[in-house]
Design a protein around this nucleic acid. Structure first.
Length: 393
DNA sequence: TCTGGGGTCCTAGGACCC
DNA sequence: TCTGGGGTCCTAGGACCC
């Protein structure tokens, strides 16, 4: 049976959702009708544009540029800080609404969903008509617009939803690929980023059609296994299933400093804060981790990472930090640091408690940690600050 | 241009074991 | 002392995504 897959993509998600939320809260101005962006902290001079209104786009503002640059292009730009609780709320609403149409639903990111609609035509009728109906209902009930791609697999559905925006339904069936997808520039293809596109263009592979017909041996030589994937995608081939989201593979937090740092105590203080954030998230998922890694970005934007695997899974801030701190020490060189990050991976649900002769049982902070987390959940994350901070103040 | 933050997957090379 | 080949695990780094 021919598969039918929908890809639903929220138009300017963060900005649209913020606009809807504000209208609900009594604001008179719809952010979507004025030059506005969602961005980080402008004062710390490290914020970038995360999402923009169509009006802001007309000023030439692009995603990921600094707020400073954006403000130069449009002095009366309205900048709203990001608020993940709002995005989560609308993302959940969208998911709940879409779940009515198929049990096979996959949340691909906070603002994108795949639906496997294969065989549902007896229930809902013609898929394309249904896509228009879903799009209209989302606008009416939830207040924001979406693009919907309709195709025979996930790749093509995703490519289709990316065609013309906003508030559009597009199809990309197998017999439309040469007409609708092949003329596009290679960098439009999912999983072909800037680096790969640059290499391809050097060899005169400029469009997705060129890539689809490129020599497979040439692609493997330059891109290894990704070469095979790229050629399949360019031909619209993808048989991956729509599945429920599986459990997360890792948790990370990182922070860019407003200036370059080389003092170890300052780095350690930030590192501890990050371990606290990562640990808190890990514990709220009831997981333990085996691997901790630390990432540094230097002032010249070179990225380093070191990781360490432990025999007994851990989840307290104390345990994560003691490993992270060793890692940081092992990687500090002469260069100043611009960004520091902590990541935990290799999860397990239960702690494999195998106390070795050398473990000190009094070092087990899990019970204390539970109480601290509970209080944080109840009264907010800021009720505890770490002792190293108090000393510094 | 002067470059955020949170993720996933892949690969190469070294260590170690048999 | 000089030494093969396969397998697995771990680490560091790169590319890509939203």
């Amino acid at each position: 049976m021919k598969r039918i897959i929908f890809h639903i993509d929220v138009n300017n998600a963060f900005l649209s959702w913020t606009a809807v939320e504000r209208l609900k809260n009594g604001y008179k101005v719809d952010l979507r009708t004025i030059p506005s962006v969602i961005g980080g902290d402008e004062s710390a001079r490290k914020g970038v544009v995360l999402a923009k209104s169509q009006v802001a786009k007309k000023y030439g503002i692009v995603t990921a540029e600094t707020l400073y640059q954006a403000r130069c292009k449009c002095p009366n730009l309205v900048i709203i800080p990001s608020d993940y609780s709002i995005y989560k709320k609308y993302s959940d609403e969208l998911y709940d609404y879409l779940s009515k149409f198929s049990p096979d639903i996959e949340m691909f990111s906070i603002d994108e969903c795949f639906l496997d609609m294969t065989g549902t035509d007896k229930l809902f009728g013609d898929p394309i008509t249904l896509a228009y109906k879903i799009s209209k209902e989302i606008h009416e009930k939830l207040g924001f617009t979406v693009n919907i791609g309709v195709a025979e697999n996930k790749l093509c559905a995703k490519m289709a939803s990316d065609f013309e925006k906003p508030n559009k339904v597009h199809t990309l069936f197998m017999n439309e690929i040469h007409k609708k997808m092949w003329p596009l520039s290679v960098d439009n293809l999912f999983m072909v980023g800037k680096k790969s596109a640059d290499i391809l263009k050097k060899f005169n592979i400029k469009t997705i059609g060129d890539l689809a017909n490129a020599d497979i041996n040439f692609l493997i030589r330059h891109f290894k296994s990704r070469g095979i994937m790229m050629k399949s995608y360019a031909n619209g081939i993808d048989d991956s299933p729509v599945h429920e989201e599986e459990r997360q593979d890792g948790i990370s937090n990182s922070e860019t400093f407003p200036y370059d740092i080389y003092e170890i105590p300052i780095l350690e203080e930030k590192l501890l804060e990050l371990c606290e954030m990562v640990g808190f998230r890990l514990r709220s998922m009831n997981y333990y981790c085996y691997t901790v890694s630390v990432m540094l970005k230097t002032s010249s934007f070179k990225v380093y990472s070191h990781q360490k695997k432990v025999d007994n899974a851990i989840n307290t801030t104390h345990d994560i930090y003691s490993i992270a701190r060793q890692l940081l020490k092992s990687m500090m060189g002469d260069e100043k640091v611009r960004l520091i990050g902590v990541r935990v991976t290799n999860f397990t649900e239960k702690r494999s408690k195998q106390l070795s002769l050398f473990d000190d049982e009094t070092e087990d902070f899990s019970e204390v940690q539970k109480v601290v987390d509970h209080l944080k959940n109840k009264y907010g994350k800021d009720i505890f600050i770490n002792a190293t901070k108090i000393k510094r103040d």
